[in-house]
């Protein structure tokens, strides 16, 4: 019974990682940039959701939508201002810029509102908890899992069935060839950032509802974990990010359950390194042989 309860805990945590990881993976897949600012967009999303709920007095779903739209715009702005000029520079330069942007968002937020935590109001989502074979599953966990799954399916649909999705796949496969085929690469990249950031925004609101406490530096650790999740599943692969997130969440829960809660993050990284050494392309990735 206890193990199932722990699994449920892990899946709830993992679905948040998965949502953030999706954005990481999409951006990496298309521009090969480790976007360290992604975790901070997640934080901004949580705050936008918070202010929509408390100041504008909106419910969960409107707040979620507002936050997603705002984060999408924010993500595109970041891409246009900070990353686009560096598209032809070394990738390490772009990485440093991403770190700079991340610091800027964190400390800009602290400058604007202080570093103290904020608490999502009670009862934004009032759902009864479910009791299944002695396992208590809170309504919020189900809502989170449901929302995450829905967004992931939507994303799969966008990537595989729409025109913009096709363009994304083409650009990620070969940017120059895509350009020759008449695909507007700039717009496609912006669209990728928009979708990835919207997902991060959604994750932010969901995180707020589930964990209550939000603060300007909350994005750092989940951002890093989501990144690990993305690599775990095979960076650049969308189902991989979902699986990676869930696996990571479950691993963390099980490690804590075994009584080693202080080693939790360590185990996550050990798993990451083992995966990298034995299956460098991740769980879902294909190993591509390097040609001379």
């Amino acid at each position: 019974m206890e193990v199932i309860q722990q699994l449920v805990n892990g899946i709830s945590l993992g679905s948040i990682y998965a949502l953030i990881a999706l954005g990481y993976t999409m951006v990496y897949g298309i521009v090969k940039l480790i976007n360290f600012a992604h975790g901070d967009i997640f934080m901004v999303g949580a705050f936008i959701g918070f202010y929509s709920i408390t100041i504008l007095d909106l419910g969960f779903f409107p707040a979620l939508l507002i936050s997603m739209v705002a984060c999408a715009i924010f993500g595109v702005l970041i891409e246009r201002i900070a990353y686009k000029p560096l598209r032809n520079a070394t990738r390490i330069a772009a990485l440093i810029t991403a770190i700079g942007v991340s610091l800027f968002i964190e400390y800009g937020t602290i400058y604007a509102r202080g570093a103290q935590p904020e608490a999502y109001p009670d009862g934004v989502v009032s759902l009864k908890s479910l009791e299944l074979f002695g396992v208590k599953i809170s309504g919020q966990s189900i809502l989170i899992l449901g929302t995450s799954l829905f967004l992931m399916i939507l994303l799969q649909f966008i990537v595989h069935k729409t025109k913009i999705g096709k363009a994304m796949r083409a650009v990620s496969h070969d940017m120059d060839a895509a350009k020759l085929m008449g695909i507007n690469v700039n717009n496609t990249i912006s669209a990728t950032f928009a979708i990835g950031s919207a997902l991060a925004g959604a994750a932010g609101v969901i995180f707020g509802v589930y964990y209550t406490k939000i603060e300007p530096l909350m994005g750092i650790i989940p951002g890093l974990k989501a990144f690990v999740a993305a690599v775990l599943g095979g960076i650049g692969i969308i189902p991989g990010a979902m699986a990676g997130g869930l696996v990571l969440g479950v691993i963390e829960s099980l490690v804590s359950a075994a009584g080693y809660s202080l080693w939790r993050d360590g185990v996550a990284f050990v798993v990451l390194i083992l995966i990298l050494i034995f299956r460098p392309a991740g769980l879902f990735g294909k190993n591509i042989r390097e040609k001379v």
């Binding site: 206890e2 945590l13 406490k213 963390e252 804590s256 359950a257 009584g259 809660s261």
Partner: peptide, 12 residues
């Protein structure tokens, strides 16, 4: 400090 998920520990 700064952990957010205690459910696993609490279940224990």
């Amino acid at each position: 400090a700064k952990d957010t998920d205690f459910r696993a520990t609490l279940t224990n």
